[in-house]
């Protein structure tokens, strides 16, 4: 091959390496189309969007913790906690708004708690893992205690149900909320001073600190956001199912993590964004969809997803230097 041709191939190879997530998404769309005839029908696509919204919002929160150089295993427990609080308070007080407020409050509190612990321990992703592992267990226990281990049924308010189940111009409201949140976060991250400082603090805490960035404060922000997102995801989820289970968050942190990392957000901190979240959540949703269509046992799906996560991390490591 001539030198010019060779460099075109290496550049193509480089592009492929940087954009594996996009390629994977395209491959999955093709696979989906092949497996199901009405794949591209509006109803099917909209259902897909609605289904992935909850994980989508969770993935936003998880990504925020990655960007500040951390990791969050507790968002699943926060989801459960906020879900049972939301529905439980709605039932006991009769006001859906109060339930939502309680959920949001709990999410913020949990996230802030994680953030403060991260500040105190000057933690990186290793510490974040252990800390959120423990706070997650505490959160699950709180959820279980609150509802005594039983599912709570009965969301009543129509407007509340509309969040998860309704459409605006045949586009699911849940998906709209997800997309709006992503847009807002992306603007903050890429276009504001605050967002830029956040990214820098996650990428290299020492150099960020030396230019006067409040690295600890950024950690607090990132983890609080994760808690808030979990609360919002809980609201969407309970409005769709009109019930809340203290086990609803089981594995939700894993799902969010896979979506976020497969989409291209880096474990190392400071690299990534909402575009990666969008791609990753769609990839994850399509994989789940395809696995379901092919009738693979849900537990085996677990293993497949685990393998994908490992692959994604290997790729992330290779891409890093």
């Amino acid at each position: 091959m001539s030198d010019v041709e060779k460099s075109k191939w290496t550049r193509a190879g480089g592009w492929a390496r940087d954009n594996t997530n996009l390629l994977l998404l395209v491959a999955l769309i093709v696979a989906g189309a092949l497996l199901s005839e009405n794949f591209f029908s509006w109803t099917n696509l909209m259902n897909l969007m609605r289904r992935i919204s909850v994980n989508g919002v969770m993935a936003i929160g998880f990504t925020m913790t990655l960007l500040v150089g951390g990791f969050d295993l507790s968002i699943g427990a926060t989801l459960s906690m906020c879900a049972v609080l939301c529905v439980g308070i709605e039932k006991s007080s009769g006001s859906a708004a109060l339930g939502m407020a309680a959920a949001i409050g709990a999410g913020l509190a949990m996230g802030a708690f994680n953030g403060v612990l991260m500040m105190v321990t000057r933690g990186g992703s290793g510490e974040a893992f252990l800390i959120t592992l423990a706070t997650g267990m505490v959160g699950t226990a709180i959820a279980l205690t609150y509802c005594s281990g039983l599912d709570i049924y009965g969301v009543n308010a129509e407007w509340y149900k509309a969040i998860g189940q309704g459409n605006v111009a045949s586009f699911p409201i849940a998906a709209i909320i997800w997309i709006v949140l992503m847009v807002v976060m992306q603007v903050i991250i890429k276009k504001t001073q605050f967002g830029r400082k956040m990214i820098l603090s996650g990428a290299n805490k020492k150099s960020a600190f030396l230019v006067g960035i409040d690295v600890n404060g950024m950690k607090l922000f990132g983890f609080t956001m994760a808690g808030l997102m979990a609360a919002l995801a809980a609201i969407i989820m309970t409005s769709r199912t009109t019930a809340a289970s203290p086990y609803s968050g089981n594995g939700a942190d894993f799902d969010a993590a896979i979506a976020s990392i497969v989409g291209g957000n880096s474990l190392v901190g400071g690299k990534g964004g909402m575009v990666q979240v969008l791609i990753g959540v769609m990839i994850y949703g399509l994989i789940t969809n395809i696995l379901n269509l092919t009738g693979i046992d849900s537990v085996v799906q677990y293993i497949v997803k685990g393998a994908i996560l490992l692959l994604a991390i290997c790729l992330d490591k290779l891409n890093r230097r």
Binding site: F71, L73, S125, G126, F129, L130, F254, L267, G306, L309, L310, I313, C314, K317
Partner: peptide, 9 residues
């Protein structure tokens, strides 16, 4: 690979 992610998976 970082041990925490591997063992979690």
């Amino acid at each position: 690979l970082p041990p925490f992610i591997v063992s979690m998976t």
